[in-house]
């Protein structure tokens, strides 16, 4: 059993995801690990942030003492004001998402299936959950990247052959970055792209619910 091998921390996951953001992209960050991604975008790479709270081109999280109750992200965190911001209503905020104007969204997940189905709004044992803007982003963003821990707190795999939790969207995920691997859902199944330092493809398979497609060469996780 390899589950006791060292896993990468949340900041490293965010760092790896940051490399996926092309210069000039408009990006929407979900809550949790995705929020950390903005800390690791290279200074010379210009990325525009979109928030469902109705602000575009917003800055990073606000410094202490600089909080403005009306300048917040979707999770209610305070944002830094920056030149070039725009405010808009929720109709526009979601037209931007649903109309395909947001290039990349980074979301957390409870489960991702081998073909890119996403389940991230409800744990069945609670019976209910919050959807927020996740279904809009899953359906509307040009590229959906999932950033999450590879296994849940009980050790269950979150990368699975078929999702057993209620879906947020079907076949919408294009890349999965976890604390042990980078994977790409394909019509044929989940393809392994990179492994964390010290992990072999077989190690990753042993903590993964989906059957991984393992190419001849698998790169080590680069950040």
């Amino acid at each position: 059993m390899t589950a006791d091998k060292e896993r990468l921390d949340r900041a490293i996951i965010a760092m790896r995801v940051a490399r996926e953001l092309p210069p000039g992209a408009t990006v929407n960050l979900g809550i949790g690990i995705p929020t950390l991604v903005s800390m690791f975008v290279a200074d010379d790479s210009i990325v525009f942030y979109h928030s469902e709270s109705g602000v575009l081109n917003c800055g990073p999280l606000a410094e202490d003492g600089n909080e403005d109750i009306d300048l917040i992200n979707a999770g209610g965190q305070f944002l830094e004001p920056v030149p070039g911001m725009a405010y808009f209503s929720s109709v526009d905020a979601f037209a931007m998402i649903r109309g395909g104007h947001v290039d990349v969204t980074i979301l957390g997940a409870h489960q991702v299936s081998a073909t890119g189905d996403l389940a991230n709004w409800m744990l069945p044992d609670r019976g209910v959950g919050n959807i927020g803007g996740a279904m809009d982003l899953a359906a509307g963003a040009e590229k959906v990247i999932v950033a999450m821990e590879h296994n849940d707190r009980n050790g269950n795999p979150k990368v699975v052959q078929e999702c057993s939790f209620p879906l947020t969207g079907k076949g919408c995920v294009s890349l999965v970055v976890t604390d042990v691997a980078v994977m790409e859902p394909t019509p044929d199944g989940m393809a392994l792209r990179e492994v964390a330092p010290g992990w072999s493809p077989d190690d990753v398979q042993s903590v993964t619910g989906a059957r991984l497609i393992i190419p001849d060469t698998v790169a080590e996780y680069e950040v």
């Binding site: 209503s89 979601f94 649903r98 803007g133 996740a134 359906a139 209620p166 879906l167 969207g169």
Partner: peptide, 27 residues
């Protein structure tokens, strides 16, 4: 979904009979 809420409110306010959207399909 937030965007569905926004569009349903927009439809009500604008006298539109409904909105077709891919959001939520397959769920």
């Amino acid at each position: 979904p937030q965007g569905t809420l926004a569009e349903r409110l927009r439809a009500a306010g604008a006298g539109i009979g409904g909105v077709f959207t891919p959001v939520g399909l397959g769920t």
